[in-house]
Design a protein around this nucleic acid. Sequence first.
DNA 1: TGCTATTCTTACGTTTACGTAAACTTCTGC
DNA 2: GCAGAAGTTTACGTAAACGTAAGAATAGCA
Lengths: 147, 147
Amino acid sequence: MSAIQAKPLRIGEVAELLGTTPRTIRYYEEIGLLPAADDREQGKHRIYTQADVERVREIMRLRDLLGLSLEEVSALLEAEDARAQLRREIRETEDPAEIKRILEEALGHISNQLELVRRRRRELEQLESELVTKRRSIHKRLGELDT
Amino acid sequence: MSAIQAKPLRIGEVAELLGTTPRTIRYYEEIGLLPAADDREQGKHRIYTQADVERVREIMRLRDLLGLSLEEVSALLEAEDARAQLRREIRETEDPAEIKRILEEALGHISNQLELVRRRRRELEQLESELVTKRRSIHKRLGELDT
DNA sequence: TGCTATTCTTACGTTTACGTAAACTTCTGC
DNA sequence: GCAGAAGTTTACGTAAACGTAAGAATAGCA
């Protein structure tokens, strides 16, 4: 499974990949949405892994698709990060009650997100069906025109 | 069919109905998104019909659901208004070629919107299925915990 | 008719999410 | 090892979409 680690990217390449700008990526780091590599010396170039790219993509997706503010995205991702951390801790825990608690909390978060996404999807479907109806009506009139 | 014309509303009532504020509604009028009743004298209260409410609702829907800027919403609604106007003119036109042209233009606009909506919906569905997968994996682990 | 809640107008303020500029530094290819 | 492209830091700028405040006017109601 372990994919070959793609070559590290620079900020401009990441930006182009995602259809955004370096400024945006720096900004996300600035407000804590992206982790700042703590071993980067002042003035040195930032480097990004594939995982970093995915994270930025995820940020933009939540921002655009769900219309969340960056602060909301932040809260959401922090919760996810916390869960990821806990998942690592789980490996060292033997207490099944504790594991269960952690998993159930994660479940709660995911269910909440899912609710959000589903509500949005339903609203979009509503809008879509209204448009389809409109379109059909136009088609009908165009058809009548030919008779 | 003709529904009883509900009583006219004041700006605060409209705002509450839609979960927004009077300021927002005035702002939409200010930038031309909402028509300004031309018979309202300076200082008099604005009054809104049910149709007005629906228009504001539509604006907010396009804004939130599709993530359009108010300028984009404006362009989109102006196109719709123009079509509505043309539909009225159609009744006075006998030239079928002209009618056809108008209808086909409308069709184009609607199809564009539909594409936009569908793309968004598909993206949301993608996100949704990822969340479902995550959730299932957690459920599975919770299940294993009980054995 | 008077009271009070609501609205109006005007105008400046605010937040979010970056854009832009400048002066300097780091990388990378040759 | 150097030229040029890309990146860094700092700091001010900005556009969109309203928020807010003040002073005056209006509208529904007792």
